[in-house]
């Protein structure tokens, strides 16, 4: 593809990197990435992916911007309180980089629609806030053969991993076979989270996504990165492919998407002005 003068300038710091170059930048502009959640993790990942020139970005979120989101969800702002998060995210991305086509899904992803929604993307990012959605996303990514860049956080801890069972690497269920039963683990943000931690984890997801798209370096496929903000430590541990994985193992028992029950604290009345 031919770059415009403006694109050459905009992406110059990428283009001069031998690992990216004009070819890599052109690849990014033709790439399609789906981000689940325009919240704490989605905000920084979406912004860096847009800045990097990832040509098509899909974003799904059923919520509207709330004042309590702004402590960490930096893609939104005070004027957008009450507006659907996906529209607020689209506005920020389009201002940041007019090259990007943004596809929005304002609503929940379910067993019935998730596979179709993620089908046309190259890489999918999980920035969701609950276990049922994480397992749904993992299973859908597996069935659709998509690389999944997963990030999660809790208080001062964060986890990042890349799952690509279609290439012989483990999936999320190889790491955690089943979600916790209702009520056992506080999975909602009522437990609190350090705002800037979302930046650390979301940006790591963006880094891994860009590497996956370009096919450079070594990603976290087969590893889990654990960040402890209080101790300021990163620990990388191995994730093994589980031969007994119910989803990607040789004797898999999960043949279609299944829905898990939501945890009580995740129910909230999302009222939107528009």
């Amino acid at each position: 593809m031919d770059f415009t003068e403006e694109q050459i300038e905009r992406y110059s710091r990428h283009i001069i990197l031998p690992e990216v170059g004009g070819r890599g930048q052109a690849k990014l502009l033709k790439s399609r990435v789906f981000v689940l959640g325009a919240g704490g993790l989605g905000s920084p990942s979406l912004m860096y992916l847009a800045a990097a020139g990832v040509g098509t970005i899909g974003v799904a979120d059923g919520d509207c911007v709330d004042l309590s989101n702004l402590q960490r969800q930096i893609i939104h702002n005070t004027d957008r309180v009450g507006k659907p998060k996906v529209l607020s995210a689209k506005e920020t991305i389009e201002k940041l980089n007019p090259d990007i086509k943004v596809i929005t899904h304002h609503g929940r992803l379910t067993v019935d629609n998730i596979r179709e929604v993620i089908r046309d993307y190259d890489v999918v990012l999980d920035g969701s806030d609950n276990f049922p959605t994480r397992f749904l996303m993992n299973d859908a990514a597996f069935f659709e053969g998509k690389t999944l860049v997963s990030g999660s956080m809790f208080r001062f801890d964060g986890q990042v991993a890349v799952f690509k069972p279609q290439k012989g690497f483990p999936c999320y269920r190889c790491l955690y076979p089943e979600p916790p039963p209702k009520g056992l683990v506080p999975s909602c943000q009522e437990a609190g989270v350090l705002g800037a931690l979302a930046g650390v984890i979301g940006v790591l997801q963006a880094v891994e996504t860009v590497k996956e798209l370009l096919g450079i370096g070594e990603t976290l496929a087969g590893y889990l990165m654990i960040f402890d903000a209080l101790k300021m430590t990163f620990r990388k541990v191995k994730v093994m492919k589980d031969p007994e994985c119910a989803l990607c193992g040789p004797d898999a028992t999960i043949k279609e998407l299944k829905a898990y029950e939501e945890q009580a604290c995740e129910f909230k009345a999302a009222t939107c002005e528009s």
Binding site: D63, N69, G151, S152, L175, S187, C188, L224, R235
Partner: peptide, 12 residues
Amino acid sequence: LSIIPAIAGGSI
């Protein structure tokens, strides 16, 4: 040893 539970938070 490290105990590493699944964590789910990301958005909201």
